[in-house]
Computed example of a mutant assay.
Amino acid sequence: MRLTAAQALVRFLAAQYVERDGVEQRFFGGCFGIFGHGNVAGIGEALYASPELLTYYQARSEQGMVHTAAGYARMKNRLGAMACTTSIGPGATNLVTGAALATVNRLPVLLLPGDVFASRGPDPVLQQLELPWAGDASVNETLRPVSRYFDRIWRPEQVVPAALQAMRVLVNQAETGAVTLAFPQDVQTEAFDCPDGFLRKRVWHVPRPLPDETTIAQAVALIRAAKRPLLVAGGGVVYSEATDALRRLCGETGIPVGETQAGKGSLPYDHPSALGALGVTGTFAANRVAADA
């Protein structure tokens, strides 16, 4: 099928699904975007032409839309994500703080900032970063250290491997975070013969890895031998949907629970075993019990 690179990417994103425990759901809930010359004629037109594929949500702040996308991923237990598209220049650099938050907290967010012309026809273009020592750099380089995966799509056919690699990271529960596909504005609008297989529905299995018997036995021995045991509930309890199992364990043993920032909500706040968060932003009770555990 003859499509622009942007059209192919939008169709691909709409066809991505995840499955866990036999339950299948669409991965991308939509696309936030603020448009300028770096993305309006490419991704903007692709979204406008096919609104049934990927719902567009208008944003007022690039940083705000990434934070919102991270919140969406957290509430979906990382089984769903949002895409975020911006123009080049300050529109792209405004993504950095939100991208850092998503990466630090292992929350899947797909960033699609526009980029300078791959053809170097207009050079420099409006809001282009001009460095005397590098002709292939743009402001999107600022997203490299805060992204779990970064790629720049220099040719339209490169959208195929780039998008697949992006999904590989986004659905990996250990490696996920902000994924950036820098998209030169001329490449977005270039047409190519897109492989049919790239556009077909693809279901990514998200496993629920279980600890081996030796690890469980070691944990049981440590708890039985402890005089003042304390459980620390992290984000894995929430994202693996193990909160009910934790509640049953606390009900049967009475062991108190402290939570990390990602693990907040592992137990109801009024549960007898809930001490609250640990650390510098934690509660007095949780830190006192942890110090004596």
Results as ranks from 00 to 15, higher is better:
residue 7 Q to Y: 03
residue 7 Q to L: 03
residue 12 F to L: 07
residue 14 A to I: 09
residue 17 Y to K: 12
residue 17 Y to C: 07
residue 18 V to D: 04
residue 27 F to Q: 07
residue 29 G to F: 02
residue 32 F to K: 02
residue 33 G to M: 05
residue 33 G to L: 02
residue 38 G to V: 03
residue 41 A to F: 05
residue 42 G to C: 06
residue 43 I to Y: 04
residue 44 G to F: 01
residue 50 S to K: 07
residue 54 L to K: 12
residue 57 Y to K: 12
residue 65 M to P: 09
residue 67 H to N: 14
residue 67 H to M: 15
residue 70 A to Q: 08
residue 70 A to G: 12
residue 72 Y to A: 11
residue 74 R to A: 11
residue 78 R to Y: 01
residue 81 A to E: 08
residue 83 A to K: 07
residue 83 A to D: 10
residue 85 T to P: 06
residue 85 T to C: 15
residue 90 P to C: 11
residue 90 P to R: 03
residue 91 G to F: 04
residue 103 T to E: 05
residue 105 N to R: 13
residue 111 L to S: 13
residue 111 L to D: 13
residue 112 L to G: 03
residue 112 L to T: 04
residue 116 V to Q: 14
residue 119 S to W: 01
residue 121 G to Y: 05
residue 122 P to R: 03
residue 123 D to Q: 13
residue 125 V to H: 06
residue 126 L to W: 03
residue 128 Q to D: 14
residue 131 L to T: 07
residue 134 A to C: 13
residue 136 D to Y: 09
residue 137 A to H: 04
residue 141 E to G: 06
residue 151 D to P: 00
residue 151 D to Y: 12
residue 151 D to E: 15
residue 153 I to Q: 06
residue 154 W to C: 12
residue 156 P to L: 04
residue 160 V to W: 03
residue 161 P to E: 09
residue 161 P to R: 11
residue 166 A to M: 05
residue 168 R to E: 15
residue 169 V to C: 12
residue 172 N to I: 05
residue 176 T to C: 15
residue 177 G to Y: 04
residue 178 A to H: 05
residue 180 T to G: 06
residue 181 L to A: 10
residue 182 A to T: 08
residue 183 F to V: 09
residue 184 P to R: 11
residue 189 T to C: 10
residue 190 E to G: 01
residue 190 E to F: 12
residue 198 F to P: 09
residue 199 L to R: 11
residue 201 K to M: 10
residue 202 R to W: 05
residue 203 V to F: 08
residue 206 V to K: 11
residue 207 P to F: 07
residue 212 D to E: 11
residue 212 D to G: 13
residue 212 D to R: 09
residue 215 T to G: 08
residue 215 T to Q: 14
residue 222 L to W: 09
residue 224 R to H: 13
residue 228 R to W: 03
residue 229 P to F: 03
residue 231 L to Q: 02
residue 232 V to M: 06
residue 235 G to Q: 02
residue 235 G to A: 02
residue 236 G to L: 00
residue 236 G to R: 01
residue 236 G to I: 00
residue 238 V to S: 00
residue 239 Y to K: 11
residue 247 R to H: 10
residue 248 R to I: 06
residue 248 R to Y: 08
residue 252 E to Y: 01
residue 255 I to D: 01
residue 257 V to Q: 03
residue 264 K to S: 00
residue 271 H to Q: 04
residue 275 L to T: 01
residue 276 G to M: 02
residue 278 L to D: 09
residue 284 F to R: 14
residue 285 A to K: 12
residue 291 A to C: 11
residue 292 D to N: 14
residue 293 A to H: 08
